[in-house]
C-alpha cells in the first residue's frame, strides 16, 4: 500500500517535472521556402543571429586565426552579453587559452577544449563533443543549444587551397536548421562563418556532411539554451 510519504514524493516529482518543462525555452520556428522550392520548417532565427556575425580579425593584436574565438563571441552576444572579438582575444591570451606564439596573423587559434572553457568561464557552460549524424546536430539546435561546428574550410568554401590533408581546420557557428516539411529530414543548416564573412548562410545537409561530419563531427555545445 502506498504511504502518504510516497504519495507526496510522487506529487513533488510531478510538480518538479512540470516546472522543468516550463523552463524549457521555446525555440523559434517558422515555415520557409528554400530557393529550390522545398518547404522547410526553420528552427532558430538565423537572420536575427546574422547581426552578430563578422569577419575574423577584428582585434588590435593582429590575430587572424580567431574563428573559434569569434564563435564564442557570437554565442555570448546571443545571450545578451556584451563582448567583442577584442575582449575574447584578450581574455584567451591572458589565460593561455589561445595560441600566442606563432606569427601574429596565425595566432588566436583554439582547441575544442579551450573554446568550451572560455564559454564556461564567461557564463555560458559548454562542452566539447563528437556528434555522429545531422539528426544529432538537429536535436541540439531544436533544444535551443548553441553549437560551434569544427569543419574543413576547403570543403565548406569549395576551395582546394584550404583543404590541407582533409582534416577539420576551421570553426563556424550554427544559427539554425531547416527540416523538410514533407520528409521530416534535415535539409540543411544555417551558419555564420567568420572566415568567409557570410552570415545566415544556408548549407545543405549533404554539403555539411562533407565539411563537418566526415571530418570528425567535432562540436562545442552549450549545456543550456541560447534562445
Amino acid at each position: 500500500m502506498e504511504t502518504p510519504y510516497e504519495a507526496e514524493r510522487t506529487f513533488t516529482e510531478v510538480r518538479e517535472l512540470s516546472e522543468e518543462l516550463e523552463r524549457i525555452p521555446e525555440v523559434p520556428q517558422s515555415l520557409e521556402i528554400l530557393p529550390d522550392g522545398t518547404e522547410v520548417l526553420v528552427t532558430g532565427e538565423p537572420q536575427s543571429a546574422a547581426r552578430f556575425g563578422h569577419l575574423q580579425g577584428e582585434n588590435t593584436f593582429g590575430y587572424l586565426g580567431t574563428s573559434g574565438l569569434v564563435c564564442c563571441e557570437e554565442l555570448l552576444r546571443q545571450t545578451a552579453q556584451e563582448f567583442t572579438e577584442e575582449d575574447l582575444v584578450r581574455y584567451a591570451g591572458d589565460h593561455g587559452l589561445c595560441t600566442t606564439d606563432a606569427p601574429p596573423e596565425m595566432n588566436g587559434g583554439t582547441t575544442l577544449m579551450e573554446q568550451a572553457t572560455i564559454l564556461s568561464d564567461l557564463g555560458l557552460p559548454a562542452q566539447p563533443d563528437i556528434l555522429d549524424s545531422a539528426e544529432d546536430l538537429a536535436s541540439h539546435l531544436e533544444a535551443g543549444q548553441g553549437v560551434i561546428l569544427v569543419v574543413n574550410a576547403g570543403e565548406l568554401w569549395k576551395d582546394p587551397a584550404a583543404y590541407g590533408t582533409g582534416e577539420a581546420n576551421h570553426s563556424v557557428l550554427t544559427t539554425g536548421m531547416a527540416r523538410n516539411v514533407e520528409t521530416g529530414e534535415a535539409a540543411g543548416f544555417y551558419i555564420n562563418d567568420s572566415g568567409s564573412g557570410k552570415t545566415a548562410d544556408f548549407v545543405s545537409a549533404r554539403d555539411l556532411k562533407a565539411a563537418w561530419l566526415d571530418c570528425g563531427g567535432m562540436v562545442v555545445t552549450t549545456y543550456g539554451s541560447v534562445c
Binding site: T111, H170, C215
Partner: peptide, 20 residues
C-alpha cells in the same frame, strides 16, 4: 580519424593548425 578528432586533437592541437 583518431588523430583528427581524438582527445589529443580536442585538448592540445588548435583547430586552425594544419595537420600532416
Amino acid at each position: 580519424s583518431d588523430q583528427s578528432n581524438g582527445p589529443l586533437r580536442q585538448s592540445e592541437i588548435p583547430i586552425q593548425h594544419a595537420l600532416s
